[in-house]
Amino acid sequence: MPLLELQHSLIAALFQRDQLAEAAKFVKAQGSLSSEQRVGIYRNSAHGILLDYLESLYPVCLELVGTEFFGRTAHSFIDQMPPTRPFLADYGADFAAYLSAHPALQEMLWIVEVAKLEWARHAAWHTVNQVASDFTQLETLSAEQQAELRFQLPASAQLLSAHSPIHSIWLAHQDEYPDKPQFDEIDLEEAQQVLIFREQRRLHQTTLSPDDWAFLNAVQNQATMADLAEQFADQLPWLFSVAMQENWIYSFTTTPDETKPTRNS
């Protein structure tokens, strides 16, 4: 049997229960364990590691849906969407989308939105820090260059707009916040806009006013200073002041950046 075929057969067995017997053809039985059971050890081990990982990635969702539901859903997610890259931290981005299709959650889609927030925290944490621009250099630019200025949020910035109060729900499930909201008192119909970003060794998570969210969204979509002045008019100096003080804006460029992908949720 060629090695490649053997490897594919084993991978299929890891993530598809009905492929165990096929992979077991290449494995000897030993002691009380059948060949299928011996392949099953690898399947259980891979699933166990990935389940532990998903539980650590989505701790609030785990609390919200319970260990049993989470475990069952995670196992079927692992089978249907197994890892495709060798770096574990890349795995699990699709879990929220997978939850959104679950029939049992159709009346509780706020749980899906919490899952998106938990992934956004993970993604922000695993983004490399970048060097901040020296904003005092802005005064050296010509009027034309100033109008064409574009600004960047931290590379880790995740802007989320949710139909439910995801920040409050998340906060209610944190042990270390003494003034956290009580989950029973949260209005699940309240929409919230949230910004998450990493600054050195700290992860920041904050709710945004609709104005701040619209402004940061426009900045993230690479609006020029002229576009921003048009859209936000005399609110703009204030919006920038708040954003600068909170470290939401990290750098600027004087030429259009066509390569930067827009990230919007």
Binding site: D134, F135, L138, D234, L236, F240
Partner: peptide, 22 residues
């Protein structure tokens, strides 16, 4: 209501002030 040019000037002043403070 300020004109766009005035808005940009005021915004750059706000940015400069925030940058100096930070």
């Amino acid at each position: 209501m300020m004109q766009n040019k005035q808005i940009i000037t005021a915004t750059l002043m706000a940015i400069g002030l925030s940058a100096a403070l930070s």
